[in-house]
Design a protein around this nucleic acid. Structure first.
Length: 551
RNA sequence: GCGUCUAUAGCUCAACUGGAUAGAGCAACGGACUUCGGAUCCGUAGGUUGUAGGUUCGAAUCCUACUAGACGCACCA
């Protein structure tokens, strides 16, 4: 990022001479291929029309203006009119000094400018255990939070607990029915009730606590006890699962408190004052179509009860009142139809629609050796997140989730993910880290003296093209993190780390680190490995994956 | 019927949001160690980016129409 900024400043100065400004679409990027330089810009292509020259001659003019930069080895004009920049080795060698002094903070940056952002994710109803789809959202939200914090955002993560609606009632009734069944009482199981095995476990737990005494109580009181117990127990399990999955939520926000504190009425009044509500067929409607939704939506049904949408508006009103400039919601892709109305609501609340970002995560297809595992929430037949991470491990599961774009369907094959092989890149990356640790252990065995003091005495030795290649890649770490923030997508980081690991393994095979006579060279290479180790560890931590010293 | 997302090598996925000859791994085939961890490395082969048009200096990416798949389209939560 530093280099791009320096370049951009210089280019801007030249543009100024010609009375031009930086075009929106102009970029300074790392080219795919080495022969296109270290950095490349399409600036000349996009501004040639303004000066009435063909792109190549215009690029040539720009090149001449920029010659005097002493960081640069050379500038080339290539292809239709790209400017390709080549830097001196010192530029890359100095990166090493940055990493070694910043250590675990290397890559941290101020891209986010302390912007106050909330990420709300998982938010599964506390009516059953988390499944693998929730795991994907959990990994994404947690990792995004880590990355954005690292990039200088003021991040708060939140779980919205739907503890008020019909589903919770249904949960209570389901448990109550099972309770009676287990005690050989006649019971009618609710039609849309929860049929999972865990409902029996909850009922049994209630029997262990209360024996059969709930049967003595008036039914609504008994159901209430069942409901409260089941909800609390399930929520506790969810919290345990997320903790084990290394997922952190700063705030657990209860829908019930939202309703109890009258915030829904308040937001309805607010919308009323803005003349965004009307009554039709005995129901209260919100004019969401004024803000791009397909049609208006009901907030209060003709029977007087509120819709879920109503409390969602109140919830988002609450979010913005807490001062978040941007609210990010991570939803399952099956909720995509909900986005337009939510965006409409946000605008009705006087916010810009860009202040709500919804990331959709596609559902996860769970396989075992290529065969799909049938899942049915209704029938209560599904593999829980807990079963998954117990079987394949947290590291492997998280890395897989974070290795693809969220809007692509994901095949999650338990056998493949469990395999400690090349099918599973997480081990490849972790192995690179462990390998470096191993070399340092070996260096101690061999009584090789090494310290991080005065690295500047050694870095100039790292002159080989493989050295420079690695250094260049290390220098892209910060850019990669910023890219993840821009696209709200951590998968770039996974791929970056994979590449870094590949470069390390290649380097290791090509260049003996410790087995060489030249002591200064050994020292320089150890410095390089140390820097790679920091970056691998920093990067893995942002994904919530461990960086083991041994495997 | 309407809408959203997806379609890239045999398989699983990338491609820095319009850039240069579309890249990795797996699987296949052929190689590399008497020493730092073989969970490694090197090489070969594999593509009309679902189809057909369009936009422009330039398209996997944007637009239009198709095809196939997933998911939505309640005064459900």
């Amino acid at each position: 990022m530093k280099l791009q900024n320096i370049l951009k400043n210089h280019l801007n100065q030249v543009l100024k001479k010609y009375n031009l400004t930086w075009p929106q679409k102009a970029t300074i990027t790392y080219p795919k291929e080495d022969k296109f330089g270290d950095l490349s810009t399409n600036l000349a292509l996009l501004t040639s029309k303004n000066v009435g020259k063909n792109p190549r001659t215009w690029a040539e003019d720009l090149r001449k203006e920029l010659q005097q930069l002493d960081l640069m080895e050379k500038i080339e004009v290539a292809g239709p009119g790209f400017l390709n920049f080549y830097f001196k080795p010192k530029v890359w060698q100095d990166i090493l000094l940055d990493i070694l002094s910043q250590k675990t903070t290397f890559g941290a940056n101020q891209f986010g400018q302390n912007k106050k952002v909330q990420i709300e994710f998982v938010s599964a109803n506390p009516t059953g255990p988390l499944h693998i789809g929730h795991g994907r959202g959990a990994a994404l939200g947690d990792s995004l939070a880590r990355i954005m914090k690292f990039s200088g955002y003021n991040i708060e993560t939140e779980y919205y607990i739907n503890d008020a609606g019909r589903q919770i009632k249904l949960l209570g009734l389901s448990v109550w029915a099972r309770y009676k069944e287990l005690l050989n009482q006649p019971a009618s199981f609710p039609e849309d009730g929860y049929r999972g095995e865990y409902i029996f476990n909850l009922a049994q737990a209630l029997i262990d606590i209360h024996n059969n005494q709930l049967l003595e109580l008036p039914e609504n009181e008994a159901v209430k006890i069942c409901t409260e117990y089941a909800k609390d127990k399930i929520l506790k399990d969810i919290q345990d699962d997320l903790k084990n999955f290394r997922v952190n939520h700063d705030v657990w926000f209860s829908e019930k408190t939202l309703l109890d504190s009258g915030q829904v009425e308040r937001v309805l009044n607010y919308l009323q004052e803005k003349d965004l509500l009307y009554t039709k067929d005995g129901a209260l409607w919100f004019k969401s179509s004024q803000f791009g939704d397909d049609k208006d939506r009901v907030l209060q049904k003709s029977d007087g009860s509120l819709t879920y949408f109503a409390s969602d508006i109140a919830y988002h009103f609450n979010k913005y009142q807490r001062g978040f400039e941007l609210v990010i919601n991570i939803w399952g892709a099956d909720h995509h139809g909900y986005i337009p109305r939510m965006k409409a609501a946000v605008q009705a609340l006087g916010k810009n629609k860009d202040q709500l970002e919804v990331i959709l995560v596609q559902l996860v297809n769970l396989l075992r050796e290529g065969n799909q595992i049938a899942m049915s929430t209704r029938a209560g037949k599904f593999v829980t997140l807990r079963e998954v991470y117990n079987e394949v491990g947290v590291d492997a599961a998280r890395f897989i989730f974070l290795s693809r774009k969220s809007d692509s369907h994901l095949d999650f094959d338990l056998e493949l993910v469990k395999k400690q092989s090349m099918d599973n890149p997480v081990y490849y990356v972790q192995y690179a880290h462990a390998r470096i640790c191993s070399i340092f252990r070996k260096s101690i065995e061999k009584n090789i003296t090494f310290s991080l003091k005065n690295p500047q005495q050694y870095v100039h030795i790292l002159n080989h093209k493989d050295d420079l290649y690695l250094l260049k890649h290390l220098s892209k770490f910060e850019d990669t993190i910023i890219l993840c923030c821009q696209q709200l997508s951590p998968h770039h980081l996974s791929f970056y780390l994979y590449e870094l690991a590949a470069l390390l393994h290649r380097y290791y095979n090509e260049h003996p680190i410790l087995n060489t006579e030249n002591k200064n060279l050994i020292h320089a290479r150890l410095l390089l490995l140390k820097a790679i180790q920091y970056v691998l560890a920093n990067g893995l931590d942002l994904l919530g994956v461990t960086a083991p010293e041994k495997m």
